[in-house]
Nucleic acid binder design. Structure first.
Lengths: 121, 121
DNA sequence: TCCCTGGATTGATGAACGTCTAAGCAGAGC
DNA sequence: GCTCTGCTTAGACGTTCATCAATCCAGGGA
């Protein structure tokens, strides 16, 4: 994609305010942004909620699909997006496929939001 | 396979697992998904970080723009997206415009991530 | 073995997104 | 008033995304 302005970044000073501190969200931007982007869809957010709220910790796809008014392939696509973002994982068990939450990734994203919220109060 | 009628949701039982519990992420899906979508871009994530990590709690746009390799209007666009998502707010003060974090929205999104993560451990 | 079912993958299409250039608007200084 | 600077808005363009129909693959049962 376009990217043709190799500006040094940070060397300009307009004099309106003191220089900026180092950002608190480090170079993990790409992975974190991908995680948030995966969450940026109502269907995926609800899928994640349904999986997380299930008692056994894992849910069969056949339980998820009839909950939505979109086709099976679409649900499968959204589950794949969530899986590629590292938010969920799955395993085939006989006829059915089961999905479960990856708590570490969720906690990491939650931390990214908690830190700035607390720092700016 | 004909199945795109507005099914009541939850009335089908394939017999592979017990019925699903009520989801823990409620009807606030739309607003939350919009918030996460706004965070789903590396530039916006870094903008939020820069604003949140600033000592005074608010940052002049002229401090943000030179930090990125995209044009000024593009930064302005991303700031608008963040503002429409309720994550930041701004005010014109003389020549310059200042942005600051809205902690409540960040905290709310963080809670949405913390709850499922804790429930599924 | 064959067939049926559950689910993922592929390919196509319309909508949404990110980026740019150009133009517009609001303050500050001359 | 005029002009300059800081920032936003408008319009255009190429890319990415969400969705569906059709197809394919894996397991289980007769």
């Amino acid at each position: 994609m376009s990217k043709q302005l190799p500006v040094p970044a940070g060397t300009e000073d307009s004099g309106c305010c003191p220089p900026l501190a180092q950002e608190s969200i480090p170079a993990s931007d790409a992975a974190a942004a991908a995680g948030f982007k995966a969450l940026g869809d109502p269907i995926r957010l609800q899928l994640l909620s349904l999986i997380a709220s299930h008692a056994g910790g894992e849910v069969c796809v056949c339980e998820l699909t009839p909950r939505f008014e979109v086709s099976g392939p679409t649900i499968s696509h959204h589950l794949k997006v969530l899986r590629q973002a590292g938010l969920i994982d799955c395993e085939r068990r006989g006829t059915w496929v089961y999905y479960w939450i990856v708590p570490a990734m969720l906690a990491r994203l939650a931390d990214l939001l908690s830190a700035p919220a607390a720092a700016s109060v």
